[in-house]
Computed example of a mutant assay.
Amino acid sequence: MLELLTGLGLASASGLNAYVPLLALGLLGRFTDVVTLPAGWAWLENPWLLIVLGVLCVVDVVADKIPAVDSVNDVVQTLVRPASGGIVFASGVGTETVAVSDPGAMFADGRWIPVVIGVVVALVVHLTKAGVRPVANVATAGVSAPVLSTVEDATSLSLVAAAILLPVLVLVLLGGVVGAGVVLLRRRRRSRAVARPRSAPR
């Protein structure tokens, strides 16, 4: 069960920022004993890959804070974030961490299943993020872009930390993300209803 929560937290984090969970797994696996990646995912510890991921992460973080550019970035990331989610979910359920000491058995027979689950989880989170952002930008004349982006980055980092150190917290954090998404979507519907012109009386 903890393996599943670890993968779920990492994949959800990928839906917000594709590179944060990849970097976290790679860096922690290479330089600490907190994470021990399964053999099939040890390539995440490659130093050149970590450098590339670091550069891409900086670009993504900056672009996501600029109004209009953030929406273009979301379009580009529609393929990247789900792919990242598939990788980190599959590697996460087979990763030994301080919270998970016996990983991997639950998905051992169907290795493609965790990848698909991770892709779907990350895609759902990404589509929610990509749908909310343009509405928030229009409603606040772009002022909300850096604020929302910073909150999303912090949430992604928190999900990764919870997934690795205390997977049960993933459920609490995801509950907060879902709640925030529902509130924003309701506001979007209300703003559309207010903006819709009333039919002229006959």
Results as ranks from 00 to 15, higher is better:
residue 20 V to A: 13
residue 67 P to T: 11
residue 129 K to E: 00
residue 188 R to V: 11
residue 140 T to A: 10
residue 47 P to V: 07
residue 103 P to I: 13
residue 30 R to I: 01
residue 187 R to I: 01
residue 76 V to P: 08
residue 187 R to H: 07
residue 190 R to S: 13
residue 80 V to F: 11
residue 52 V to H: 03
residue 171 L to W: 00
residue 56 L to W: 03
residue 2 L to P: 02
residue 30 R to W: 04
residue 78 T to E: 03
residue 36 T to H: 12
residue 189 R to M: 14
residue 54 G to S: 01
residue 85 G to Y: 07
residue 127 L to P: 01
residue 184 L to P: 01
residue 32 T to D: 04
residue 162 A to I: 11
residue 110 G to C: 09
residue 158 S to F: 07
residue 143 V to L: 15
residue 128 T to H: 04
residue 18 A to I: 04
residue 73 N to M: 05
residue 131 G to D: 08
residue 18 A to H: 03
residue 18 A to N: 02
residue 106 M to C: 00
residue 127 L to C: 01
residue 85 G to Q: 08
residue 152 E to T: 10
residue 5 L to R: 06
residue 172 V to R: 02
residue 185 L to Q: 06
residue 151 V to M: 14
residue 123 L to T: 13
residue 88 V to E: 07
residue 35 V to G: 07
residue 173 L to W: 06
residue 12 S to A: 15
residue 102 D to M: 13
residue 153 D to A: 14
residue 195 A to W: 11
residue 97 T to C: 13
residue 148 L to I: 12
residue 58 V to G: 02
residue 25 L to H: 02
residue 121 V to H: 04
residue 146 P to N: 10
residue 73 N to P: 00
residue 103 P to Q: 12
residue 59 V to S: 01
residue 60 D to G: 03
residue 84 S to L: 03
residue 44 L to H: 06
residue 195 A to S: 15
residue 41 W to N: 01
residue 171 L to I: 14
residue 115 V to Y: 12
residue 165 L to Y: 09
residue 155 T to D: 07
residue 27 L to M: 10
residue 148 L to K: 04
residue 78 T to Y: 12
residue 160 V to M: 10
residue 70 D to M: 03
residue 43 W to I: 03
residue 187 R to K: 06
residue 183 V to S: 05
residue 97 T to H: 11
residue 11 A to K: 10
residue 159 L to T: 10
residue 4 L to S: 11
residue 60 D to L: 05
residue 92 G to A: 10
residue 171 L to H: 00
residue 109 D to Y: 13
residue 155 T to I: 14
residue 78 T to G: 15
residue 131 G to S: 13
residue 23 L to K: 04
residue 82 P to K: 05
residue 195 A to E: 14
residue 162 A to S: 15
residue 113 I to V: 15
residue 129 K to T: 02
residue 42 A to W: 00
residue 32 T to S: 12
residue 26 G to D: 06
residue 80 V to D: 10
residue 90 A to G: 15
